[in-house]
Design a protein around this nucleic acid. Structure first.
Lengths: 418, 418
DNA sequence: CTTCATTATTTCGGAACTCGAAATTAAACG
DNA sequence: CGTTTAATTTCGAGTTCCGAAATAATGAAG
């Protein structure tokens, strides 16, 4: 059942849509906010005044676009997030690497670093402390105060338990059940969560994509966009109802470890026949090189070896071409299964795994065609798009900021807070 | 982006939760409604007064449960939906059969019928008219007025396009693209929709289940319940966020036609290797009887033949046992794939397809175990429950009534309307 | 340089809700 | 028949939004 509604709900929701519009469409004047949100100018005035009083927003002086500033009438004054009053910290951990990005409330990245860290053989009970140390160093090196950081989000490959902030399993770690959120919460006394990296890509895509409205608004039907990332692994994020869906425990959309062939090739997750076992770097490598099925699947395939494979595929070497075709088919059948279950309206596929595109794209589409009835398939837009490499950090920041918007919005108008 | 909020949203939402509570928990007094919804007694008084003025609710005289009525103090007066002021009409079409149920606003079925109708060889352009005629007859035979019917919902096996009210494909029809909603809308001038029957089972389950709260409320995480029905076919409904998810076009959760084995056994949908091709009646029959793979898959298996098969399975006939095991494995891998994508918190399985339960249940669980990583699996409750046979009509009625609640709730307090 | 036109923003009063506290109502108890 | 108890209603206050009118800040025109 839904929650009861009262004026507090109204305030929260309207403040949130104002903040969200502002975050997505850059600095905006009150009139513009009114047009975008559907709120009256009077209400925008009130809401803006409160947000300004709370040090969340500020008016930006001058510098309007020429086309607008040379009009008659009172010029508009745009509003923007105040920088330096609050930050969020996004962290991405991948195999033996940690990246940090500090962003202000407007989403601007103000500080950024990447460094080496031993993950694979890390001790679970120590790793949280190591990350905390890195954060402390990172913040010390910046000119920002740790106290200005509202929230930390960690994006990581593998299976995250968001309720408990634990990394249940990851190809980056030999160990299981690595606690990540608690050590940081204890150390820095701020909210901290852990999420799957592919879901963070979806968060970023959600922000980018807010402009083109999903079709649900028009038809009343619910639309889903699935974002699939293929490369060192295969991940997916699901955007439903303008939110990224994380599932009951945060493990939603483990697309790469959805089974493709029952009792098939071994996967680094320990099961057999996962999509990744055919479509991820190591799966393609294994097939192309005719390695035995029980070949330890978790060794990272370096970019040089993948480049070799690509060249061989371009050259038409049959075994390699077949490997890429198998990879495409695995992805295609996975997408077909996704369509059968969720009837999404849009599927976006990206990542280095698409490099041998003239082989893999047709194989994907063929797999989709073989795997699901045409009536379901024909309404789904399947798009191949490039993602920028830092999409994970970007998405983590976006997710953190949406969190903060919700929080900022929670308490009554009682002076500065953030 | 979310919609802006205003006092109308507040009214709508609060009216809806009141109506919903009343529908699910039978007649309730104002105090009880207050406790359940979290609204103050004062607000409940106001809301109830409006709903009574609009002829939607009425006070029920006397007959309180003894335990309550023999207390001191002013006795409570319960509220209930007024009967006879409005109805919804639920229709279930299956192979060569049509069932109709007329329910009043409280959800009580006041009239009900089932009859024969030729579907499989029906002409698409004529079938809508035939259904309309049946409805007219049905209503004429009842003592209710067609004008009191607010809305019609049709539940049907196969793939429905809810946006256009068309049955895209169904095992009950040789033809494709059978228009169903438009003919009824034209004839009766009321809203009408078409939906998948398995999704209607989920609607019914949603109503039944509102008592035990889904876990999202507590944790903030999103929970999904999947309801799987296996029998003449295999269907699934997804309950997310206290709503049944229908997908972009209404084709969500075509679980039975999710691929199990690439290029596998032919399915009556025209693809190969669908779960149904192994787990539905005809799939089990085909395997158990060693029929060739290309055996026309769409002939209905009558209950007598299925009973034979069950007896043979009980008797331990190896080929038949193997067929049921294969069926269970297909279901199990399907569920494993579902878990990998959606990380649901609960999966409910039911239907006559579970009859050979000592064979099929372990096979299902083994398939799940083989198909998805333990960390994801362990948080999912998998339950085998009996559904009543009329669950489809029941769920359709529930869905229709929730629609009507939303509508009733839309306009301002301007006199009787429904 | 003044006045007008134009556009943005604020102010003000009214309307729609909810809520808490204080009546009011309707029974059982003694 | 008064007292106690519990349900419901009434009343006044507190939010928040909105429309209309007022105010502010500018360019254009004379």
């Amino acid at each position: 059942m839904q929650e009861k509604a009262d004026s507090e709900l109204v305030r929260r929701q309207n403040r949130r849509i104002v903040l969200r519009a502002l975050r997505e469409k850059g600095p905006l004047a009150r009139v513009e906010l009114g047009r975008m949100t559907g709120l009256s100018p009077a209400s925008i005035t009130t809401i803006a005044a409160q947000l300004i009083a709370e040090n969340i927003l500020e008016e930006v002086a001058g510098n309007l676009p020429l086309a607008i500033s040379s009009r008659r009438g009172r010029p508009m004054t745009r509003l923007r997030f105040r920088s330096n009053t609050g930050h969020v910290l996004a962290i991405n951990i991948s195999i033996d690497k940690i990246s940090l990005a500090l962003a202000d409330l407007s989403g601007l990245i103000v500080e950024c670093s990447a460094s080496h860290v031993l993950t694979f053989n890390a001790k679970p009970e120590q790793f949280g402390g190591i990350v905390a140390d890195r954060i402390a160093q990172f913040m010390a090196a910046s000119d920002r105060d740790m106290a200005s950081v509202n929230r930390i989000g960690i994006a990581i490959q593998g299976l995250a338990d968001m309720n408990n902030g634990i990394l249940l399993w990851s190809p980056a770690f030999a160990a299981r059940n690595v606690p990540l959120a608690e050590p940081l919460k204890d150390r820095f006394k701020i909210p901290c969560w852990v999420a799957n990296d592919a879901n963070m890509i979806a968060e970023g895509f959600l922000s980018l994509d807010m402009a083109e409205r999903s079709p649900d608004a028009a038809t009343g039907r619910q639309g889903i966009t699935a974002t699939i990332f293929t490369g060192y692994g295969v991940g997916m994020g699901l955007i439903m109802d303008d939110k990224v869906y994380h599932g009951a425990t945060g493990g939603a959309s483990e697309f790469g470890h959805m089974n493709h062939i029952p009792h098939g090739a071994p996967c680094r997750c320990g099961r057999r026949g996962c999509i990744e076992a055919y479509a991820a770097d190591y799966g393609i490598w294994r097939l192309a090189r005719g390695r035995p099925d029980d070949d330890a699947p978790h060794d990272a395939i370096d970019s040089q070896r993948m480049a070799e494979l690509l060249a061989a595929a371009e050259g038409g070497e049959p075994k390699v071409v077949a490997a890429f075709q198998t990879a495409g088919e695995a992805l295609g059948f996975g997408i077909a299964r996704l369509i059968a279950i969720l009837n999404p309206h849009r599927i976006v596929i990206a990542g280095p795994g698409l490099s041998a595109s003239h082989i893999i794209k047709p194989a994907i589409l063929a797999g989709v065609a073989d795997g699901v009835i045409e009536e379901l398939r024909r309404n789904v837009a399947i798009e191949f798009v490039p993602f920028e490499t830092d999409m994970i950090l970007r998405g983590t920041i976006d997710a953190l900021l949406r969190d903060v918007d919700g929080e900022v919005t929670a308490h009554s108008s009682a002076g500065a807070s953030v």
